[in-house]
Design a protein around this nucleic acid. Structure first.
Lengths: 252, 252
DNA sequence: CGCAAGATTGATAAAGATCAAGCCGGGTGG
DNA sequence: CCACCCGGCTTGATCTTTATCAATCTTGCG
């Protein structure tokens, strides 16, 4: 996949070929990070902005008793720390879940984007606001949805987010999470995660084959999870864009 | 309180008297909203940006079975929907918890700020990023902290946020939440909320007198809640700013 | 082959939800 | 002035969800 950043941004924002060229240059400086390593640790003051190009990562918080809460899952095209400069230091860590390709963007490049490329700036804003919307949905999931529906909801979310960057193939996507990591994202114990997962399997809603997730009937899963994709704000400029997108989902 | 927006922003960002004048003008157009009314409903596309000047409000999501999750508590100085324009429609509602004074800021004013007032723009960015940091902490609270500590953590957070806008007086602050509303924020049932609240009272950590919360020993409450104020990014330009701020807390 | 990490299962305990009353205080209408 | 009514608070009993503890199984891999 050439440029997941461009793909993601242009999916819901109007960007042109010139913008694509610029974003291609932005992601030129890549490096790889092995699975289960910190990309940025809590307390860091990173100079460069980091972006996931390939692989999965997560934001997480550690509690004094050693528990961990994953507060976001980062997929290709997601920023780790756009705008840390403004906040100063990281209040959480970012770790890879799989082998990852990470891009480091020097502050000068970010400044150039915000000063000279309003369309891109606006779409970066959009990405930030969607991240926030996802967090609100996670709060709702944690507060009010039982564990099985919560997991189902997360699978719906990842399905659409990964679809936006072309990583859903034939109703399946890669998801290199151990059950412990899933439990840390859902806020439950690993034992409970295991049981809820096998419930979902038994219901035929989600199947896990190795590191791949298969969602045979997305509508059924959405219904079970009470999933409303509105919060992802994927709707492009046209009114019926989402309908198209959703109708399209079986055809890939 | 004259201008909670200026107070909040200048607490962690460098702003001068000229900025204050501009922000005073920004909040000129005020209106009042009665308690327990929607300021903005899910699905709205508000033209103006809304800001709480006085009173308490909340962001919330409704589930199909009628359950509610409060995903943020808004206090004076907090924006309801800075930048909705970019996302299009609201994916959640905003309701008052008490009688509120709300400001409506026309898009032209926001544009003027972002184009002509870089210091203010930066501090608005800061406010947005802090909102996101608060959401991450809420995710952690919901996922990994038991209800009593979760409530204690929220009280610590509100204590510091309200202190930043001058609303903590003599170790107390107003909090016009019913137990049902608190339960909706913490993600528990009202019965459990009631029991955890009386536990906190019994431990002497938090006392509730009418609509006022008293935190006699903030250090003890922080310790109980495992509260680390770093995520609020209140630290001003100086290194020991937070220390000053925290040391100051008993003296008001 | 044998190990280690991860997945699974069973038994039991704790946290929290639900159901059902009762209480308390402030406002309202007679 | 008082009865009563209603929203919100409190309490007890019981049920459900989830956590914890403790094995055991499975599988990829050196």
């Amino acid at each position: 996949m050439a440029n997941p950043l461009f793909r993601k941004l242009s999916d819901a924002n109007t960007l042109n070929d010139a913008d694509r060229d610029i974003l291609d240059k932005v992601i030129a400086r890549q490096r790889t990070v092995a699975a289960r390593r910190d990309v940025i640790s809590a307390g860091d003051r990173p100079k460069d902005v980091h972006l996931v190009i390939e692989g999965f990562a997560c934001r997480y918080k550690l509690l004094p008793d050693g528990q961990r809460q994953i507060v976001a899952i980062l997929v290709p095209g997601d920023f780790c720390d756009l705008h840390v400069a403004i906040l100063g230091e990281m209040d959480h860590g970012i770790a890879t879940l799989s082998n990852c390709t990470i891009v480091e963007i020097p502050p000068a490049t970010v400044d150039d984007l915000t000063m000279n490329h309003p369309r891109i700036t606006r779409s970066l804003w959009w990405a930030t606001l969607v991240d926030e919307a996802i967090l609100r949905e996670w709060v709702t999931n944690l507060g009010r949805r039982p564990a099985d529906r919560h997991i189902a909801h997360l699978m719906c979310e990842l399905y659409l987010r990964l679809k936006a960057v072309g990583l859903v193939i034939d109703h399946t996507f890669e998801l290199p999470l151990t059950q412990q990591e899933l439990a840390d994202a859902i806020g439950i114990s690993i034992v409970h995660a295991n049981r809820m997962l096998s419930d979902l399997r038994d219901r035929g809603l989600v199947t896990f084959q190795g590191r791949r997730v298969r969602i045979a009937d997305f509508d059924a899963l959405m219904a079970f999870a009470d999933f409303d994709p509105a919060y992802l704000h994927l709707v492009p400029r046209t009114e019926n864009g989402l309908q198209r997108d959703l109708a399209d989902r079986g055809s890939h």
